[in-house]
Design a protein around this nucleic acid. Sequence first.
DNA 1: ACTTGACTTGGAGTAACTCCAGGAAACTAG
DNA 2: CTAGTTTCCTGGAGTTACTCCAAGTCAAGT
Lengths: 119, 119
Amino acid sequence: MKISEASGECGLSPDTIRFYEKSGLVQIARGADGLRRFSPENVEWLTLLYWLRQTGMPMKVMHRFASLYQQGAETIGDRTALLLQHAEHLRTRRQELDCCELVLAHKVSTYEALERSIA
Amino acid sequence: MKISEASGECGLSPDTIRFYEKSGLVQIARGADGLRRFSPENVEWLTLLYWLRQTGMPMKVMHRFASLYQQGAETIGDRTALLLQHAEHLRTRRQELDCCELVLAHKVSTYEALERSIA
DNA sequence: ACTTGACTTGGAGTAACTCCAGGAAACTAG
DNA sequence: CTAGTTTCCTGGAGTTACTCCAAGTCAAGT
């Protein structure tokens, strides 16, 4: 699988995939032609990275995670812990969304009241 | 009110407040000593900006919003529309969180299964 | 043979901060 | 009244995580 197809499957842009490879988050094999060839495992890994990044995990933490991943099976406990911590972080984000929704609803209702008082 | 107190109330760092002022998102009066003096209205506005930014509104859109705000009451309809659109965006974000939560839960459960199969 | 399209690299540009150096004004302790 | 600490100011450099671009290679289609 070449980069555009992998990009379509994992959600990351080709540029971002190359950037992640350069910074060591993923290792991708090359064909005899020098082009990147993505394995299903590559795609699964990149998809996971996509979701972690999309929900605000910083690169530093992703690097820690990637380093554990590359060390193999004995780091699964640490990886689980890291993912659970990120799940905790998602709850915080959700509370932020809730809070912002309240702020918006309040603001919109005062705007609507203002508009009625003008009209 | 001076900048550190305003920062504490609105959630933005002093540096970010200065950055927002420089880029035109807010106008802040100065005292005779040259220091910024924040009105309650300033703080309310900055708090709104904080929430919009925190939930992913890009600077470009915030500038549009700020420009409407500075044009006065006749832009309230436009401002309401903009906020409602952002509220829509919040729903998208929440779906992303949901989706990531599923991905994480699945990954954690496969990790746990793997760990049991090793141990 | 030639164009088109997907890929490669290295490097510049961008968004939105964040930090820092250097300096002024004010408050606080001795 | 002086010395030190805090809080503020400005302009500018540094950071994160991309994103875009120029210049070049290679394979496939017409």
